[in-house]
């Protein structure tokens, strides 16, 4: 993916830049709002990572508003030291697709950026069937089969699996699952998500030879065909 990173703090910028490049992405960088805005409007990116507060008069929100004003729908992930929920709402209202507060774990950032990059790609037609390896999901009849064998799932387990399949091959974090599958925006102290995933595994992986849902240490989960 082509990614633009606009961040003024050199340490954070270098850290993110290195990580994204290691993950195989092509990354352009800017350390101020002016350059960032110029790159964002003149080049074509799959994802833009914007720091909320930038030096030089043009901050992240201004860049975002300008982009959206020009009908540019590039997915934008906002980074901010402002953890305030209202700030988050303001960021999403201005047209941001995701919002992360500093400090953050790189794995979380990478997972979210990759999820955004995939969302940016236009889908040809609304899908009714999702297939990964020998796992199939029929969204109309709401049935799941693996190797032709039917798997019974609770509605919430179905939504969890659907999310994993839609992001197959990508790491999804616990926070992403909590936000996207359950629509909760808080930080549970207990391992609620892990328990739900392990239950899903009981049904999707246990009866079969090869597990498809894998745990990525310090990051989250990934659903893979191989």
């Amino acid at each position: 993916m082509r990614i633009l990173l606009v961040e003024d703090d050199p340490t954070v910028r270098a850290f993110v830049l290195k990580g994204l490049r290691e993950a195989g992405h092509v990354v352009d960088e800017a350390d101020n709002g002016k350059d960032g805005l110029f790159l964002a409007v003149s080049e074509n990116y799959d994802v833009v990572i914007l720091d909320r507060m930038l030096p030089g008069g043009i901050d992240g929100l201004r860049i975002l508003e300008t982009l959206r004003g020009q009908k540019n729908a590039t997915p934008v992930l906002l980074l901010s030291a402002l953890a305030d929920v209202d700030e988050r709402v303001a960021g999403l209202k201005a047209g941001g697709d995701d919002y992360m507060t500093k400090p953050f774990a790189f794995s979380e950032l990478l997972a979210r950026v990759e999820a955004l990059g995939r969302r940016g790609r236009p889908e040809s037609a609304p899908q009714t069937r999702l297939v990964v390896g020998d796992l199939e999901m029929d969204l109309l009849s709401r049935t799941v089969k693996r190797g032709g064998e039917k798997i019974d799932l609770q509605p919430r387990e179905f939504r969890l699996l659907e999310f994993l399949i839609r992001h197959a091959g990508q790491v999804v974090t616990r926070t992403m699952l909590l936000e996207r599958v359950w629509d909760y925006h808080f930080d549970p102290q207990t391992n609620v998500i892990d328990v739900h995933v392990s239950r899903l595994r009981q049904k999707v992986d246990k009866p079969f030879d090869k597990p498809m849902i894998h745990t990525i240490r310090n990051a989250g989960y990934i659903l893979r065909a191989d």
């Binding site: 359950w182 909760y184 328990v195 239950r199």
Partner: peptide, 13 residues
């Protein structure tokens, strides 16, 4: 109900 559903698994766990 939503919370109860979210927590039921970890409670049983």
């Amino acid at each position: 109900e939503g919370l109860s559903e979210l927590y039921e698994a970890s409670v049983e766990d």
